[in-house]
Amino acid sequence: MDGVIVGGPVATMTEGGERYGLLPDGAVAFGDGVIQWVGPAAELPSEYSGRPLTDVAGRLVTPALIDCHTHIVFGGDRAGEFEMRLEGASYEAVARAGGGILSTMRATREADEDALLASALPRVDHLIAEGVGTLEVKSGYGLTVAHEAKMLRVARRIGEVRPVRVVTSWLAAHAVPPEIDRAAYLEDVVLAGLAAAHAEGLVDAVDGFCEGIAFSADEMSRVFDRAVALGLPVKLHAEQLSHSGGAALVARYGGLSADHLEFLTDADAAAMGAAGTVAVVLPGAYYTLRQDAAPDIAALRRHRVPIAVATDCNPGSSPLTSLLLAMNMAATLFRLTPEEALAGTTRHAAAALGLGGDIGTLESGKRADLAVWSVRQPAELVYRIGYNPLAQRLIGGVPS
């Protein structure tokens, strides 16, 4: 499908020029699913002038948004334990009552692929309705080889039944289930399952939870070594609840991203900056868990670490299905600027998925994934709370 978008400001989200890469009166020409030209409307080359025109009537055009960290495929919910916690129950009491990750594990294991898909799609649809064009989905709640692979097959199916690009992450190193000892789980499920899922074409990247209650940096090194041997990029849940050495570890492996980072140090930020590892901040989890420590945004800026923003959509610590709200939270809770927040869901989110050469900015040669918003200023996408101004979304140049 060929076309040209004109009639409004275009936030290309490219670096090195105007804030937001903004063209006050821009034009975007696309064909065969990719952007072929971007620039001031007055300079539109004649070769594109005969194409069908879409006049956005003063609305803002941006890249389609990217949610680069989600656990959106899972069984059941944890609303009951949310209520228990608000009534004063401790984490231990919730666990004794059958709550926590083991509750989600049981519900995920009991659900077949069709049921998991049916429960995930309403959450996915909320993100699509807010202009999301690319979505990362992790495993991590099945905690057996078969059930982890089942989750990633469902993730692949999401991309088949909805107009959204899905990127998958193998997250078997999320928790140890009660029926198996730790060493056997790491060897027989995390490592052996990774190889099997990769052979099935289900894995785009490898993730883990590096934390005192989860897996150590030494254990994650074994997982990362296997990922590297398979030619897969790595990322990591790091420094969320304590300082566990995860950020430095993923930087040492040249990983795509380190995510959460509430207990990040300046040395961690320096290592990430040198490695080109993206920091993915997740304000939904910070808010839900009512954490005291926040990511050191100043250190990330100081060491020129790209900062991405994501929902962390999951049933326990971040039941959030609004990337627009995540941007507002990142600004109000972590003090990101509106430009940083929008870059965090476009350019830097693409880098966190290893897709910076294909999506995330409006440039010639990139996929024609665009969002049209009923606002005039990019900052308005971050400023409003509980308001969705999306007017149109194009994926590969096709309205959807």
Rank of each mutant, 00 (worst) to 15 (best):
D2T: 10
I5E: 00
G8W: 01
P9G: 07
T12F: 07
E15T: 13
R19Q: 12
L22V: 03
L23I: 14
A27N: 04
V34G: 11
G39Y: 06
P40T: 09
A41W: 11
L44I: 09
S46P: 10
L53E: 13
D55R: 14
R59S: 13
V61P: 03
V61E: 10
C68G: 10
H69M: 13
H71A: 05
I72Y: 10
I72P: 05
G75P: 03
G80S: 15
L86N: 14
L86V: 13
R96C: 03
S103V: 12
M105F: 11
R106W: 10
R109K: 13
R109G: 05
E110C: 14
A111H: 13
A111I: 10
D114R: 15
L117A: 03
A118K: 07
A118W: 05
A118E: 08
S119Y: 07
S119Q: 15
L121N: 01
V132T: 05
T134Q: 11
L135V: 02
V137C: 14
K138S: 12
L143A: 05
K150Q: 01
M151S: 11
A155S: 04
A155R: 03
I158C: 06
I158N: 02
R162Y: 00
P163Q: 05
V166C: 09
V167M: 11
L171N: 05
H174F: 09
P177C: 14
E179A: 14
E179N: 12
L186D: 01
V189R: 03
V190Y: 02
A205D: 00
A205V: 00
S216K: 03
V223E: 01
F224S: 01
R226M: 09
A227G: 01
A229Q: 14
K235E: 03
H237E: 04
E239Q: 09
S242P: 02
S244I: 00
G246F: 02
G254M: 09
G255M: 02
A258L: 06
A258K: 10
H260L: 08
E262D: 09
E262T: 03
M272V: 02
A274H: 06
A275H: 11
A279T: 02
V280H: 05
V280A: 04
V281S: 07
A285W: 03
R290H: 14
P295S: 09
I297E: 03
R302N: 11
V305Y: 06
P306L: 06
I307E: 12
A308G: 06
C313T: 07
S317N: 06
S318W: 08
L323V: 05
L323A: 04
N328A: 15
N328M: 08
M329A: 15
F334N: 13
R335A: 13
R335L: 09
L336R: 11
L342A: 01
L342P: 03
H348S: 12
H348P: 08
A349F: 09
A351Q: 15
L353P: 04
G354I: 10
D369A: 13
A371F: 04
V372R: 06
V372D: 01
Q377R: 15
Q377K: 14
Q377C: 07
Q377D: 13
L381Y: 00
V382Q: 01
I385Y: 15
Q392R: 14
L394Y: 04
V398M: 09
P399L: 12
S400D: 12
S400F: 07
